[in-house]
Design a protein around this nucleic acid. Sequence first.
DNA 1: AAACAGGAAAATG
DNA 2: CATTTTCCTGTTT
Length: 289
Amino acid sequence: MASPVRIQSDSAVLQPPHSTGFTESSLALLKREDGLEMVEHKPRLDGSDRGHPGLYLSCFDMLFTEDAAWLVRVSDSSAPVGVGPRLETCQEPEQCPVIDSPGLGASPLSPTLEEQVEERSLEQVQSLVVGEVLKDIETACKLLNITPDPMEWNCGNVQKWLLWTEHLYRLPQVGKAFQDLDGKDLCSMSEEDFRQRSPQCSETLHAHLDIWKSAAWMKERCSGGETRMRGIFKIEDSAHVARLWGLRKNRPAMNYDKLSRSIRQYYKKGIIRKPDVSQRLVYQFVHPV
DNA sequence: AAACAGGAAAATG
DNA sequence: CATTTTCCTGTTT
């Protein structure tokens, strides 16, 4: 039997948008890789679908669980060789446009082209950079045995961090100037305060502390809220998906043309969009800000 | 030839 | 009433 939908993300957890029939579950449920189970879910309801054969048991099950709490997990190993992660990960940062923070000085090249490329790549670059930064911080923390949040540091931790940063960026050693400060003190210091203690590398140190502070802030925000997800998915068999969709909505005349029109209706509402690199039959759930 | 994009209007709950 | 389906015209892949 064919596989109607292929999920391209590694995992997804999402609340169904209220009163929206077309939830991620509605699609996710439809896909299963040939030999391997790709989608599993934990239904909280009574299954009245015992008669169906294995493959679409879960599908039909999910078809009637719209309002129930649900969870979709897709195992990593089942990611298709073809498309998959390439859609979400930019492996060639060299190719991305340079995005300088405050110090601009950008050259006035062809604006339209540059804007286009920039817009398309901004998101990827952003997540790439954030990911790298978080990774670096994590390794540093492991190595130094300190917490990622500077606010929690004691004086010893502060010294460790200073030493590490100095080493990493070949700065002169200024640890003594910050000897009796703990993390809280350090975080409350302005750049001017830094300069007073250490004229040489105050800028760099303060900037790096800022990065750590933002990372900790971000981490708290993200983990406190709902988990991030993308749910990029590809409809493998449009006719089949449409048939199932019609089945679920009691609309025997449903076809992909009409189903896709419904999907397009969600563009406006910011629920679904086409991925950055548009591909036929590939859609993407908009990750909540 | 199929997928895509939306406008418009009917149907649906 | 908002949402979804139906039907449509035209464009893109």
